[in-house]
Amino acid sequence: MKLSPSVSIKQTQTGLEYIEVDSPLCDAKIFLQGAQLTQFTPKEQKPLIWVSEDEDYIAGKSVRGGIPICWPWFGVSENQDWPIHGVARTQVWRAEEVNEKDDYIEVSLSLPMLQVNKAYWPHETGLQVIFKLSKALSVSLKNTNLDKEEISFTQALHTYFPTPDIKTTQVDGLQGSQYIEFGEGPFDQNDIVNFARETDMVYNNAPLVQKIKTQDGTISVARENSTSCVLWNPWIDKAQRLSNFQDDEYNKMLCLEAANVKQDTVKLAPGESHTLTTIIKWES
């Protein structure tokens, strides 16, 4: 991969390589493991991405925070003992290309399918993620069916957002959709979402833009090629059971994830492609 003036390759003390972006537009970090973005901060603005202070960046383990890529299934597989959220987030991706322009930097990575255990995913598939970094962040996950048969999969861009206080945080823009939570539902979403308990809502027929309202400002979260999204906060009890997560950090984060799940499962005929995109920015 040919780098640009604002892009370099660095390594953590634990040996994980990451792409660092330090440009007039923004600062960012993208780990090769999982193609997982862990930092995005527009210049002269607050961070748009959250990572746990207890994260230890160990090979083979997804980072607690950032944007883990859940693929080719979201959540718990129907097959017992298969890894939660699929296989992509713990594999080392290949850095493909950096394209730096005056108004954005684009970084693309691909997942070498030879690394993927065929017991989990026997299909010939092209999988690429493209990060477009400016004052806003766009993340696009492109699947291409290179097989001779139809494939189907679920996926999510599992984005962790920061907030000064979850108890005063609201999510607007989900009204009119329905959600399933803890295996129950569907329920109608009629109001703005507030947080006062563990939240694990899987939405279908969701509007394409939501607003996360925090004391630091409002974050706009948009999706493309997705009618589903996931809203999550572990709250008090579950936070104490999570790895690489401080007991009180539930108060400083939430996840709002662009997804293709449930009725929104993707099916691709041979030769077809699908691109799931999330677009994140501070409201001016």
Rank of each mutant, 00 (worst) to 15 (best):
P112I: 05
H85V: 04
E96M: 11
F74A: 02
N79L: 08
K142H: 08
A119K: 12
L111A: 00
K142C: 09
F74W: 03
P68F: 02
S62E: 01
S138D: 15
I84H: 12
T125A: 10
V87N: 12
L133G: 04
G75E: 01
G86R: 12
E97I: 07
E78T: 12
A136T: 15
V87M: 12
A136L: 15
W121H: 10
V98Q: 09
N145L: 03
N117T: 05
G66E: 00
N117R: 03
V98G: 07
I67Y: 01
E96T: 11
S140E: 15
G126Q: 06
W71P: 02
G86I: 08
I105M: 00
I105L: 00
K142L: 12
K101W: 09
S140A: 14
A95V: 13
I69P: 05
N117P: 04
Y120C: 06
Q91R: 14
E96V: 12
Y120F: 14
S108P: 06
I69C: 00
L127T: 03
R89L: 01
E124Y: 11
L137T: 04
I67D: 01
G86D: 13
E106L: 05
G65A: 00
V63W: 01
D102Q: 08
Q128R: 15
W121P: 09
N145I: 07
E78N: 11
D81H: 14
H123G: 05
N145Y: 01
Q115D: 07
E78G: 09
M113C: 04
D103N: 13
G65R: 00
K142S: 07
S62M: 01
N143S: 15
S110I: 04
T144G: 02
P68Y: 03
G126P: 04
D103C: 07
K118N: 05
F131H: 06
